[in-house]
Design a protein around this nucleic acid. Structure first.
Lengths: 233, 233
DNA sequence: GGCACCGGTTACGGAACTGTGACAGGGTAA
DNA sequence: TTACCCTGTCACAGTTCCGTAACCGGTGCC
């Protein structure tokens, strides 16, 4: 499901972590060198990065800085793994953009637990999303419009769920494909358009004048923040 | 700015942390007992909770569980602070809903750094740029002037975003073309002029006397640093 | 004062983008 | 097996947006 990039030069430790992460259900990509790490990230788009600081050929902190400077990678959590235990080292790692800092030696199961913390849903919000007349009931996998259930297919539901989880935020087609279809997608971005169309036909009173699913020309789509806000000229 | 709830029974440690957190600019609310902690959270709605596990009158893990079960508090990050260092203790704390687990003794500045990680904007700069009356909301792809949304096209938005991200800095037309249109551009530099014009028409009260988008004759354009600074004669 | 240069403005054709209907392939249930 | 539904793609059309050329007025240099 989730993809983790692992950069660790110690072959034994690499294998140990790879094995344990895979046992937890994560996909592991990685390398035992720091060279080409950023290129690896760009290619693989991991959901989290586990990064050794002291690598034989390069510096983990430097890699971290480059990740944070790259617009498409900057959001990825980085978990440092290092023998450097001093106060300044710890602070430096966290200040430079690290999201966690684990000092060797460490408990493998604690590392796993910390990885899971990063993937844990922020318990963000109720299990029922509600915007205007529209309700999305996660546990029941049901969408209600003015109380009436609307039949959605699986993909339609996931797309709507993602858009409704952050009302007002505009997503590009690529972001939606990543979030709804998954990283290993083999899908045209125009597919998103078609699903937006289908959702509009099912949800909007007047599909030609959408009040829920807004197009943002040149960028992508968003779920309208307020149900009100009539289209001004 | 941000409010932190601190639950720690050791009076010396409590004072030390309170002092250091306040020095960092955080508001600190808290108690040296576990009783009434959840009520405190409900009343104060902190942005983050620092929680000792071994309290004389109650159990920090229990408090954590109750926070996670409360719909209005469930999203608040919890940072455990404890002398329990065993593998199972660490895993338990993280599994039960903790976002971080710090073992005593610890470096105060590391704790501060970890707190800051939780408040850090997802890296690449602020998500809302603000200059005077003008706001550029990146996730919403929206520009607001005195609170009123202004409709911009994709290219207008990108150009404004770039200029606003470095207020006061003057860019040549070539720099703007590189940054906004991309290196492989096949565009005349006069195109920039036209977009500046269009932005002025949409943003400036008096397009003939621009207060946001300044021309710098012979060089290029810049976004005015301060909204004030009336045009002196 | 004349002249070259620079930036502001307008209008227009073409490119790019989105909405939409139709369709093929695959999976599933009766 | 058959029929249906879901999924993803394509092609076409309408609309919007983009970029350019051209014209204009102002500025500063000589």
């Amino acid at each position: 499901m989730k993809k983790i990039a692992l950069i660790e030069d110690d072959a034994d430790l690499y294998s140990l972590l790879e094995y344990n992460l895979q046992k937890e259900g994560y996909t592991v990509v990685g390398a035992q060198t720091g060279k080409g790490a950023v290129e690896l990230f760009r290619r693989e788009r991991p959901d989290l990065i586990i990064l050794d600081i002291m690598l034989p050929d390069s510096d983990g902190l430097e890699i971290c800085k480059r990740v944070r400077a790259h617009p498409d990678l900057a959001h990825i959590p980085i978990l440092f793994l290092t023998a450097r235990a001093s106060e300044t080292d710890r602070i430096l790692g966290l200040e430079l953009g690290g999201n966690d800092y684990i000092v060797k030696p460490f408990f493998v199961r604690e590392l796993i637990a910390r990885v899971r913390v990063h993937f844990r849903e922020p318990a963000n919000g109720a299990s029922v999303l509600k915007v205007g007349d529209l309700e999305l009931d996660r546990p029941r996998r049901q969408v209600r419009l003015r109380g009436r259930p609307v039949a959605l297919t699986a993909t339609e539901f996931r797309l709507l769920e993602y858009l409704m989880s952050r009302p007002g935020v505009v997503f590009t087609r690529d972001q939606l494909l990543d979030a709804v279809w998954g990283h290993d997608r083999a899908v045209t971005d125009r597919t998103v358009d078609v699903y937006i169309l289908r959702l509009r036909q099912k949800l909007e009173d007047d599909p030609a004048n959408p009040s829920f699913l807004r197009s943002v020309r040149g960028f992508g789509y968003s779920f309208a923040e307020q149900t009100a806000a009539p289209a001004e000229v």
